[in-house]
């Protein structure tokens, strides 16, 4: 009887120990490297990628290979599919989306244009966006329900454009002393990042600021944010470089990833976003790749 008791207590101790070790490691390293999207398959290294677009319907990743003036597509497993240069016409592409009509829209920095690429019609058109007399400087781009969301780098505000590219409205933060540097459309909200004030902002669909919280104690140079499946906010620090995680109320949870050049490490990262398959994708401008991390 005593022997059985001992066995039971030892087993319980072992189980508790294993559980503690497992949970501790989860708390410190919750994300593990899953895949890398690089130029190996295309025979040309990706140079200074600046954005990732994910097409959930087609189950594809599109990497904006800014340094090579091309868009590179990958399967959801991370296998190279195609390299697209738009007949060599792209000039410093920076971000992209695909609209309901299958037209690809690319922010071209060198032309300060929101360029449309209609592959079926073999038509590439540059579009300069105006707000009255002033020219917008497109930076980050997203698309939802027939509306283009364009971050204007000059004002740090998000311009909402109709499908004919006329200005519909602006999303801006009157209380912020500096502009927005990145944003994500999540359900009916627009989550945005104020770089210099180091604040995360949440706007409602009507453009009104719902809430904001400070990330300055944990983040030095925020460049991008993403909202995880559980609602946590992930903030990418370009200079640290790492990712800081906050809960919906802005309480700091943990930081992960570190500077480096090897697999799973970051060097001059520029954008983060979640894919529909549970992966956290980090666009690394410095290492010329996109790394996908999974739990």
């Amino acid at each position: 009887m005593k022997y059985v008791k001992n066995m039971l207590s030892q087993s319980a101790f072992l189980a508790v120990s294993i559980f503690m070790v497992a949970t501790t490691s989860l708390a410190t390293e919750p994300w593990a490297w899953k895949a890398t999207l690089d130029g190996a398959g295309s025979g040309q290294a990706i140079v200074m990628p600046t954005a990732l677009y994910i097409d959930a319907d087609r189950q594809r990743y599109y990497v904006v290979d800014s340094g090579n003036n091309r868009l590179v597509s990958f399967s959801k497993e991370g296998n190279f599919l195609l390299s697209f240069t738009a007949e060599g016409k792209l000039q410093v592409p920076y971000d992209m989306v695909r609209d309901n009509s299958d037209v690809i829209w690319v922010v071209e920095k060198a032309r300060n244009s929101l360029t449309s690429i209609n592959i079926k019609a073999k038509e590439i058109l540059t579009h300069i966006i105006y707000d009255g007399e002033r020219t917008l400087v497109p930076d980050r781009l997203d698309y939802k329900d027939g509306i283009f969301y364009v971050l204007d780098k000059e004002t740090g505000q998000i311009a909402l454009l109709n499908s004919d590219l006329t200005l519909k409205s602006w999303i801006s933060c009157a209380e912020c002393t500096s502009g927005i540097v990145d944003f994500k459309l999540i359900n009916d909200s627009i989550w945005a990042l104020d770089q210099l004030d180091k604040k995360v902002l949440q706007f409602g669909g009507d453009g009104k600021l719902i809430k904001n919280f400070d990330v300055g104690q944990k983040v030095e140079f925020p460049v991008s944010l993403a909202i995880g499946p559980a609602g946590n906010i992930y903030v990418l620090d370009r200079h640290a470089p790492d990712i800081a995680v906050f809960d919906t109320e802005g309480s700091f949870k943990y930081t992960f990833l570190t500077k480096g050049w090897s697999r799973g490490e970051l060097y001059f990262p520029i954008e983060i976003l979640f894919d529909p398959w549970g992966g956290l994708c980090v666009v690394e401008e410095g290492n010329g790749r996109v790394e996908v991390f999974g739990r």
């Binding site: 600046t50 410093v92 920095k109 060198a110 400087v137 780098k153 500096s178 540097v181 210099l196």
Partner: peptide, 11 residues
């Protein structure tokens, strides 16, 4: 200002 990275930023 129309480069990949610019200082078109600030208050």
């Amino acid at each position: 200002m129309f480069a990949r990275h610019s200082h078109l930023t600030g208050k």
